[in-house]
Nucleic acid binder design. Structure first.
Lengths: 146, 146
DNA sequence: TCCCTAATTGAAATTAATGTTCAATTTCAT
DNA sequence: ATGAAATTGAACATTAATTTCAATTAGGGA
């Protein structure tokens, strides 16, 4: 399934007339292999294990392309740092963020989504996208602290 | 009701040993009189009409205090600029943001809130706060563009 | 294969939002 | 009124993100 996503990117790159470079290829590959919710810094770090010469700018640029190609979305949580997550246009998920350990858990709830639409309709809005972020403490952290 | 909120701030200031200054007082007064969702820039602008010498730093500092006192909350929407809104600890509201004109509409839906708690519980989280932001187009902008 | 042009890169400079420093000023308890 | 402590604002520092630009690289065509 990585393969399929890689092809999507290659297709996108071809249409845009982008050239294939070692740097960009390894950034894309690393992103596609990764878990979601990487900050630019996170990804830069991972990528440097493969090629220590790759700079921040290239990571930024490639993440922009990934977002443009539809494979990633940029999200802003409360810490002010942008994070990129894998995008599957079919499904939308929301986030639970632990204020202690920073863990980010995804969830999806059709019932909540439906209610959101309803509320927006009532207020005359046509909704294109949304973010629902919940901040709190995960069970592990609550056990450890009491 | 501004009066009550002002007293809350004065109480908070007294407890912290803060002194009362012309600058801070007028920033607080301006914020309390204002509509919600002011950026630092917005508030600075408003305050300058009263006292053109007040600098950004003081506005930043005062907004931090307002947040600390519980009268304001800092929110980050997708444009990356922090906005401060009035906080009534009794009620929580979410946001509809028009991607065209930038209007921000508040709403509250107990049913959505209840479902959120439920989902979080199921995943072992104890939720402290949340943001639900919906982006789309308001009825006015849809009419104008079609 | 070797060019040639256009795309790409990375280091460094730039921007935008936010924070901090510090000398000068102001507040307020005494 | 006086002096310690808080406050201010201009300038400087920081952080995340973006842009610039000279040097490099990719890849289609001769």
């Amino acid at each position: 399934m990585d393969q399929k996503r890689l092809e999507v990117f290659q297709q996108f790159a071809a249409e845009k007339g982008l050239k294939s470079t070692r740097q960009r290829d390894s950034i894309v590959a690393t992103f596609l292999k990764s878990d979601a919710h990487l900050s630019v810094e996170d990804l830069h770090h991972l990528v440097q294990e493969v090629n220590p010469k790759i700079g921040y700018a290239t990571v930024y640029r490639t993440l922009k392309l990934l977002a443009e190609s539809g494979l990633a979305v940029e999200r802003k949580f409360d810490d002010g740092q942008a994070r990129y997550e894998h995008l599957d246009p079919e499904e939308h998920h929301d986030h639970l963020i632990c204020l202690d350990c920073g863990e980010i858990v995804e969830f999806e709830d059709k019932q909540i989504e439906a209610l959101q639409e309803e509320v927006a309709d009532r207020l005359g809005f046509h909704v294109v996208s949304h973010n629902l972020d919940m901040y709190g403490y995960c069970s592990k952290c609550r056990k450890e602290r009491g």
